[in-house]
Deep mutational scan, measured.
Amino acid sequence: NPITQSQFVPLGEVLCCAISDMNTAQIVVTQESLLERLMKHYPGIAIPSEDILYTTLGTLIKERKIYHTGEGYFIVTP
């Protein structure tokens, strides 16, 4: 039996792509809307728990890849 190979993409990278897409579409990015986006637009991805999502978003903020305001999460533009 051949083994199907899937590509590994770090969660942080997927979140940045999803946040960027949602920002472009002017969709408010909350943790809930982000999870919905992942389920709908990234089939096959293991949906992270709320704790993992929260921690990963926190890491992306520390790395200055995203920022959070009262209006949601946004990509940091250079």
Rank of each mutant, 00 (worst) to 15 (best):
R64E: 13
V9Q: 11
I75G: 07
G58L: 11
T30D: 05
I19H: 00
C17G: 15
M39T: 11
Y42T: 08
E13Q: 10
Y42K: 15
L57I: 06
V28R: 13
M22P: 01
N1Q: 03
T56L: 09
R64Q: 08
V76Q: 06
P2A: 02
F8G: 14
G70K: 10
T30S: 07
Y73E: 04
E50L: 11
P43S: 11
I52R: 09
L38M: 08
V28P: 14
L38I: 13
H41P: 02
G44Y: 06
T55Y: 06
V28A: 12
H41Y: 12
L53R: 02
H68Y: 08
T55Q: 14
Y67W: 07
T56W: 05
T55A: 11
T59M: 11
L35A: 07
L15A: 04
P48Q: 02
L15R: 01
L34G: 00
I47V: 14
I27E: 08
A18I: 15
T69D: 14
P43L: 03
V29T: 03
L15D: 01
E50T: 08
L35D: 00
R37I: 04
R37D: 04
I66Q: 04
L38F: 04
P10H: 14
N1A: 03
A25N: 12
E63T: 08
P78Q: 09
I75K: 11
D51S: 10
T77L: 07
A46C: 15
P10Y: 09
L53G: 00
V9K: 14
R37N: 07
S6I: 05
E71M: 14
D21S: 07
K65S: 02
C17A: 14
E13M: 04
E63R: 07
I3A: 13
I27V: 09
L35Y: 15
S6A: 13
G12Y: 09
I19K: 01
F74N: 07
T4N: 15
T55R: 13
T77A: 08
F8P: 15
M22T: 01
I45A: 07
T56E: 08
E63S: 09
M22H: 01
A18L: 15
E63M: 05
P10I: 13
M22Q: 02
P48C: 04
I47G: 04
L35I: 15
T56V: 14
T4S: 13
A18V: 13
I61W: 02
G70P: 14
L57F: 02
I19Y: 04
I19L: 01
Q26E: 11
L15K: 00
S33I: 07
T24S: 12
V76R: 14
G12L: 12
S6G: 09
I75Y: 10
S49D: 14
G44W: 09
I19F: 01
R37P: 00
M39C: 08
H41V: 07
T30Q: 01
I66V: 11
E71P: 00
Q31H: 06
K65Y: 03
T69E: 08
R37S: 06
V14R: 09
S6Y: 10
E13D: 11
A18H: 04
F74K: 14
E63H: 05
I52S: 09
D21H: 05
E63K: 13
Y67G: 06
K65I: 04
C16V: 07
D51F: 04
K40S: 12
Q26H: 07
F74R: 12
I47D: 05
V9H: 15
K40H: 11
G44K: 12
L34T: 00
E50W: 09
C17Y: 08
D51M: 09
I52L: 10
A25P: 00
R37W: 13
I45F: 09
Q31K: 11
P78A: 04
E13A: 05
V28I: 12
E13W: 04
I75S: 12
T77E: 14
P43K: 08
I47M: 14
E36N: 06
V29K: 00
D21N: 05
K65Q: 06
T69V: 03
V29E: 02
L11C: 02
S49E: 07
Y73M: 03
I61R: 04
